[in-house]
Amino acid sequence: MSEKRKEKLYKVAANRQNLTVILENVHDQHNIGAVMRTCDAVGIHEVFILYTDARQKNITLSDLKTTSTGVKKWVNIHLYNDLEKCISDVRSKYKFIYATHLDADSKSIYETNLSESVALLFGNEHAGLTEEALRMADGNILIPQVGMAQSLNISVACAVTLYEAFRQRQNADLYSDSIDDKNAYNQKVFDEYLNTHNEAYLRGRLNSKS
């Protein structure tokens, strides 16, 4: 591995955040791929993808990784069919879960603290989030709009929300190109990236000889 490549992996790992995304019953694989690329861009290391719809429960991890070419090695995908298990695992890592949902009590993303340890919950392209998922969230957030439709494509809504989180975190100096002794999580991510790179390199060498 070149020093330039190693430095790139180090900086990416150093900037990974305590921020994640949960997608519930999002069926369009292109939307999932777009969300994954945005997650990588703002420093998210893992996403949680949940299918409670019986028509989608046969989707596999391999199916999802096919849609996220380019970032699948750097953003981990956790696939679930059980809502309670998914939320439980998310809560073991992140302090708050905010659902993107238009409601009388919803807060604007610009009035919500997204610099904390947060998981952002997005729903299906047509039906939105299930009532069960909404009940498990700590609150609802929305993207202010002044148009007639009052709706955005899931990948667009995710990008807008994540870049507001990015802005807030930049202002709070939460991005850094270095890993100090207190950042055990980021060091773990860096070690994982080194292993991923080395494994890919070895596979490439073996394939070239076959």
Rank of each mutant, 00 (worst) to 15 (best):
A14H: 05
N15P: 02
Q17R: 05
V21D: 08
I22W: 06
L23C: 15
L23N: 07
E24F: 02
N25C: 01
H27R: 07
H27F: 03
H27K: 13
H30D: 11
H30C: 10
N31R: 03
I32V: 09
G33E: 11
G33I: 12
A34Y: 05
A34H: 06
C39V: 06
D40T: 01
H45F: 12
H45Y: 10
E46D: 10
E46F: 13
E46G: 05
V47K: 04
L50E: 12
D53G: 10
D53N: 15
A54W: 10
A54Q: 11
Q56T: 13
N58K: 15
I59M: 04
S62K: 12
S62D: 15
L64D: 03
L64Q: 10
K65H: 06
K65N: 14
T66S: 14
T67K: 04
S68C: 15
S68Q: 08
S68E: 08
T69L: 11
G70Q: 09
G70R: 10
V71K: 07
V71W: 07
K72H: 10
N76V: 11
N76A: 13
H78P: 12
L79G: 15
N81W: 07
N81C: 08
N81L: 08
E84R: 10
K85T: 12
I87M: 09
I87E: 03
D89R: 08
V90L: 01
R91G: 14
R91S: 14
R91P: 15
S92R: 14
K95Y: 15
I97W: 01
Y98G: 09
Y98K: 10
A99F: 02
T100M: 09
T100K: 00
H101M: 00
H101I: 01
K107F: 01
K107E: 06
S108G: 01
I109C: 13
Y110Q: 05
E111F: 06
E111S: 09
T112Q: 05
N113T: 03
S117V: 15
S117D: 14
V118H: 07
A119G: 15
A119I: 10
L120A: 07
L120S: 03
L120R: 05
L120Q: 09
F122L: 02
F122Y: 13
G123C: 02
N124S: 09
E125S: 02
E125F: 03
